[in-house]
């Protein structure tokens, strides 16, 4: 142990210690590694086709053009029709919004009742949910096709919405259950003594304390459903294909020249929604925790 007779106040630290240099080095390299593809996509999407054929994918665009973006959105060919991604975008919105709202709401209510209102068979219900969250989707695909066909909703938006809601349930309910279980039980008891019932306790006590977990659930659902390909292609029917399916159709179309710039633009457009969700709700998430909403 070394001691310094003059030591007083904060210990002096130099910024460029070997550890710091290594840490920052690694972080910067990792960041570049992940940002490079994005850079390539953006620059390519802003180039004209002749410029792309020159071949240097890392070169910045000499002549910036937004033509590929417009085409991707309005007139790229997705299979037989050539209306661009716009219809797919709206289909995805029509699928994602209701699925997210319904599944998050139902999951929150079931998580809450599993923790606080222990009904008969709630343990059994919970076990089934737990199992549900481990079963791979593919196993249930065919039975679900049959069921939705029976219900006469196969090939409609309703079918996809229903499927997304069902498949979101196990993991979301688990999420909410664990969160509500971590809240002090005495709060719930106090509310009951105050005379509040099932729904009032849920909406006025539990939900306001649970904004962070709602943010997490919404992020999970919006990104998960928006990125879904399988259920969209199976259950939605051709005219309701979500954006991901249409993107695939654009990128994989075999007719004519491959328009890399349009493909890149279309991909970025499709990825934009989850990206925005991450940015916006991430902020919410942090705010929710920082506000100390959980602490009594």
């Amino acid at each position: 142990m070394t001691t310094n007779a003059e030591a007083s106040g904060p210990r002096p630290r130099s910024f460029f210690t070997p550890t710091r240099i290594v840490i920052y080095g690694i972080i910067i390299v990792a960041a570049l590694y992940y940002l490079l593809p994005l850079y390539v996509m953006i620059t390519t999407s802003l180039k004209g086709l002749p410029e792309i054929r020159i071949g240097n994918i890392f070169a910045p665009p000499l002549e910036v053009t937004f033509e590929p973006w417009v085409k991707a959105w309005t007139s790229a060919c997705t299979g037989l029709t050539c209306n661009g991604l716009a219809p797919g975008f709206w289909n995805s919105v029509k699928i994602t919004l209701p699925s997210t709202i319904v599944s998050v709401f139902i999951a929150a209510v079931s998580g809450y009742s599993l923790v606080n209102w222990r009904f008969k068979g709630s343990e059994f219900f919970f076990t089934v949910l737990l199992l549900g969250s481990f079963i791979p989707y593919q196993v249930m695909l065919y039975p679900l096709v049959m069921i939705t066909a029976q219900m006469k909703i196969f090939g409609t938006l309703w079918a996809v919405i229903l499927i997304h809601t069902i498949f979101g349930m196990p993991i979301l309910t688990l999420l909410f259950r664990n969160y509500f279980a971590s809240l002090p039980q005495e709060l719930f008891k106090a509310a009951r003594v105050d005379g509040a019932g099932f729904w009032r306790i849920f909406f006025q006590i539990m939900v306001p304390m649970s904004l962070p977990i709602f943010a997490v659930a919404i992020i999970l659902q919006v990104t998960g459903i928006w990125n879904d390909f399988l259920f969209g292609v199976v259950f939605a029917g051709t005219q309701n294909y979500p954006m991901t399916v249409q993107l695939n159709n654009i990128v994989n179309s075999v007719q004519g020249v491959r328009e890399y710039n349009v493909n890149m633009a279309a991909t970025i457009l499709t990825a934009a929604v989850p990206l925005i969700v991450y940015f916006v709700s991430g902020k919410w998430f942090v705010r929710g925790i920082a506000a100390g909403a959980v602490k009594g």
Partner: peptide
Amino acid sequence: MVFQSYALYP
């Protein structure tokens, strides 16, 4: 009723 953890609605 008064609880040990106060149980105030935060």
